[in-house]
Simulated scan of single mutants.
Amino acid sequence: MKKEKTESNHNDDLRHQAEELLKDSRNELVGSETVDGVDAMALVHELQVHQIELEMQNEELKRAKLETEDALTKYSDLYDFSPIGLFSFDQQGLIQEANLAGAALLGIERRNLMNRPFYRFVVPKDRNSFDEFCKTAFETSTKQTCDLSLLRDGEPTNYARIEGIAADDDSPNGRQCRIAVIDITERKKAEEKLRVNRDRFRAIFDRAGMGIVIANEMGCIEDCNAAFSEMLGYDKEELLQKYFKDITFSEDFDRNLGPVRQMVAGQIDKYQMEKRYMNRDGREIWCNLTSSAIRGENGELVHSFQVERAVKRQASKVIHC
């Protein structure tokens, strides 16, 4: 109803403009003639108005056609020269459209991709994930995402993130799934490198012969290795419930607070000292301590990383708790 009202108003505007143009351009006709009871001047006027309306409508159609062609050209440029791969495939998984980046990603000329199954460019181990992606996309018409490896010349070359959604299409094939294929190879390599470094650090941390402890800014123990647990005679799970003050020899606690406060204040990032811990039996354990700050983006202390090396002292006390 709203559309019909808009078109009616548009036609009224065209007629008004046509009458104004006719009023400005015509010569005044003197007198009035009647043909078979019809006012000739009124008839001529009506025909002239209608002619001008048609000319104006034709001009509007030409302008709309040019605007549509311009928009189509811009869309085509955006699609073809997008830096990420774009594909459309039907419910059989056959490629119907592809842009230049998509063709380059698969290493095949675009015209040779048409009506080829997209799954053939997915490594075999990831094809079940891709099938599930397609099934869910067509069934739900909601955005779906999956990560997989792609084949190029039959060899795995790229990691890709696929994001897509199924939609109705005017083509003979009906509904299509439109996907964006984002190359995440470099990110995957970085993640793998990070994993290797994390595993290496974990191995060094766990197997080191000296005690290593990680604590938060409040002095609560968040992680420790086997050497530290054995040195104090506690299970690791027990130590993770404690603060440093719970295991520090009472006479050394205040002395230890000075450099700790300096580290929290950002005045120092590292300190060394000898201090005494109490083991499970209440016996003092002398250690050579090296503590380093781990800071956040704004320089705040997030964790402290401590390496503890037990040192021998002739005298030892037993503290009875």
Rank of each mutant, 00 (worst) to 15 (best):
K125R: 12
D131Y: 02
L22I: 15
K62R: 10
K135Y: 05
N112K: 10
L43H: 07
V49A: 13
G93M: 09
E60I: 07
A101G: 04
A103Y: 03
D90Y: 04
L47E: 08
G37A: 15
G85I: 08
K65S: 13
N58T: 06
S88K: 09
L94C: 10
V35T: 09
F121N: 05
S25C: 14
L61G: 03
Q48D: 13
D70E: 15
E109G: 00
A98Q: 03
A104E: 15
R63Y: 06
R111K: 12
D90H: 03
F121S: 12
V38L: 12
A98W: 01
E33N: 13
L94V: 13
K23E: 15
P83G: 09
A104L: 14
K62N: 09
S141K: 03
I108L: 13
L54P: 00
A42N: 13
P124E: 02
G93T: 08
D39M: 11
N128K: 11
H50V: 07
D131P: 00
F138A: 03
F89L: 05
S129I: 02
E33M: 14
A71N: 06
H45P: 00
D70N: 11
E59K: 01
G93R: 00
S25D: 15
D39T: 11
H50F: 11
R111N: 13
L43K: 06
Y79D: 02
L100H: 07
H45T: 03
D36R: 03
L22E: 14
E53V: 03
V35M: 09
L86N: 04
K65G: 09
N128Q: 13
R63M: 08
L54D: 08
